[in-house]
Amino acid sequence: MSNQNVMKRVGVMVAGAAVLVPAFALAQVQAQTNVDVTAQAQTPAATTAAQTNVSATVATPAMKAAIAKADQEIDRRIAALNDLIGRIGQMTRVSATLKQGLTSNTQGQITALTTLKAKIDAGTDLATLKTDVQSVTSSYRTFALVAPQGRVSASADRVANVTIMMQALGAKLQLRLQAAQTAGNDVTAAAAALNDLGANLSDANTRAQAAINGIAPLTPDNGDATVKATNDKAFKTAQADLKTAQSDLVTGRKDIDVIIKALSTMHAAAAATTTTQTQ
């Protein structure tokens, strides 16, 4: 292959591995501080005749167990949401608006769950407790949206970060290869790896963008089976996109190793380039 053709290949690395993570308007999730008795219950109707005969003002052992279990569920979700807020704070490639929206929705959920927990803990009336405990399930429908929505955003942000880092390193490698080629080295294999790196970065970027776009407009299903099915499908698609993006970046990382290894055999040219650049 002639030097001219190789230079063309080195120069044709896929451009535009830019990350476009839009500041999508997250559906503002209302903090559910009111009990939602109409939500589709996912709990079995386990109330027995014996329990209905118990005094409504005294917390029976069954009620205490129900409260403990509800508290456990709420604490678990609050812990997950607090962890998510911490992760959102680490995002670096999205706008402040997007971060604020994610944080606001997540914090809103924490507030709603905390309020619900206090209500459940203070309850002694069986009928009220049953309704409140059902709310743990109904509020879960919002958790089922907010948590994965935040996680998709965080994953896409990470993909964006890695893409930009690899793009910058790829630019450095391109300069080194050009210098090595000028010095008379055969850079064919390394140039092919560089092109492959560019292709993988471009695909990773596209996938991350698609993941964000797919989950941005979703709203809580509030028990609606159709909306739930739509949300589930969107999240599964986003999950698959992000997995593919991750795979692209892992492959790209291997391309970087190939190029660096090839450059190590062209040490004389690399040293000359470094010297030139430091002048």
Binding site: V14, V19, R93, A171, Q178, L194
Partner: peptide, 14 residues
């Protein structure tokens, strides 16, 4: 070098 031309992401955190 045109291969790795950078495009500024549309949303960048300050």
């Amino acid at each position: 070098p045109t291969g790795m031309a950078t495009t500024t992401p549309s949303i960048i955190a300050t």
